[in-house]
Amino acid sequence: MILQKQLDDKTILWLQHNNQYIIVEPIVAEIASLLNTNTSIEEITTLLSNKVNAPLQEITHFIDDIAKLLIPKVKDDVKKTILKVPENFEYNYYYKMNNITIKVSYLSDFEKLLVHPKFAHLEVQEPLNINYHYEVYSNETHISFSIDKKVINTWELNEVHYFQGKFSMKIVEHIHLKEEKEWLGVFHASAISNGKESMLFLGDSGNGKSTSLALLQANDFTCLADDFVPIDSQKKHIYSFPSAISIKKNSLDTLLPIYPELKTSAEFHFKKLNKIVRYLIPNNTNYQQHLPCKALIFIKYEKNSDLQIDEISKLNAFQQLVPDSWLSPISENAEKFMNWFEKLPCYQLTYSDNKKMIETVHKIFNNEL
Rank of each mutant, 00 (worst) to 15 (best):
S243E: 11
I12W: 01
Y93L: 02
S49R: 08
I100D: 08
E87L: 08
T39K: 15
G206D: 14
K249N: 04
V277S: 00
N283D: 13
T285H: 06
L15D: 04
T222L: 12
P292N: 12
H61W: 06
D109S: 06
L327Q: 04
P117Y: 05
K103Q: 14
H17W: 10
N274L: 11
E267V: 14
H237T: 05
N153Q: 12
L70S: 13
E335Q: 14
V151T: 14
S210H: 03
V52R: 06
G165T: 09
I102F: 11
K112P: 00
L307K: 02
P260Y: 03
V24H: 10
T211F: 07
N284M: 05
V124W: 10
F341W: 10
K300C: 11
L280V: 09
K300I: 07
T154K: 10
S138A: 15
Q4F: 02
I192M: 11
T11A: 01
E368I: 01
A29V: 02
S198H: 08
I309G: 00
I238P: 00
E123K: 14
E335N: 15
S212C: 03
W340D: 03
S33E: 14
E182A: 13
T101V: 15
D64Y: 09
K103D: 05
S212A: 06
L47V: 08
L113G: 11
G185C: 04
S205M: 11
K263Y: 07
E140W: 06
N286C: 03
Y132M: 05
L35M: 11
M199P: 05
Q6K: 15
F119E: 04
E173Q: 09
D77Q: 15
S243C: 14
L56D: 08
K80G: 00
G165W: 04
K271S: 13
S138H: 15
N304C: 05
L107S: 01
